[in-house]
């Protein structure tokens, strides 16, 4: 499956939600979309046979943040990369759990490490960091703390 095939299959259904499909090494393509129609994109891509979601992650680009999804198709034996941008001061996005249940923990991780909230997530709790943890360690604004300073803010036991 080539980027053109993806664009041909998804373009009419998604309309302006689909920003574009570009080649990406090792993948069927990199599909960029607007976050408003995220759930439609997930459903459409799932409908193309990409039934296994293997990764959700986030990147902090300082002025905005990027959320990316990697899905695998058993029929095409290919990955596809989906990515969208959210503004840093309003970082939230529709959850992919209705389409891919495996997005659950990945989105919890993205939420606590990169501070991107997922709407209608079934169970948005801390996964790797303790409850009540006040930091988002994968943000570029996060500085290494003195251990004592960190301890005061995270001590909950």
């Amino acid at each position: 499956m080539q980027p053109e095939d993806l664009e041909r299959a998804l373009g009419p259904a998604l309309g302006p939600t689909l920003v574009g499909v570009e080649p990406f090494v090792g993948f069927a393509g990199r599909l960029r979309f607007r976050r408003e129609g995220a759930l439609d994109v997930f459903r459409a891509v799932h409908g193309l046979g990409f039934a296994h979601l293997s990764l959700v992650g986030g990147i902090d680009w300082v002025d905005h943040r990027e959320v990316f999804y990697v899905a695998w198709s058993d029929d095409a034996r290919q990955y596809v990369l989906l990515s969208t941008e959210v503004p840093a001061n309003d970082a939230h996005l529709e959850s992919a759990t209705p389409v891919w249940p495996s997005a659950d923990w990945h989105e919890r991780e993205t939420w606590e490490l990169v501070d991107i909230s997922f709407d209608h997530h079934p169970d948005l709790r801390h996964l790797l960091t303790p409850d009540g943890y006040a930091f988002h360690p994968l943000l570029r604004s996060f500085k290494l703390h003195e251990p004592e300073e960190l301890e005061v803010k995270t001590r909950h036991v």
Binding site: L128, T129, L144, H145, P147, E148, E151
Partner: peptide
Amino acid sequence: FRTAYSVVP
């Protein structure tokens, strides 16, 4: 890991 964000020193 003393200065890591998640480790008890």
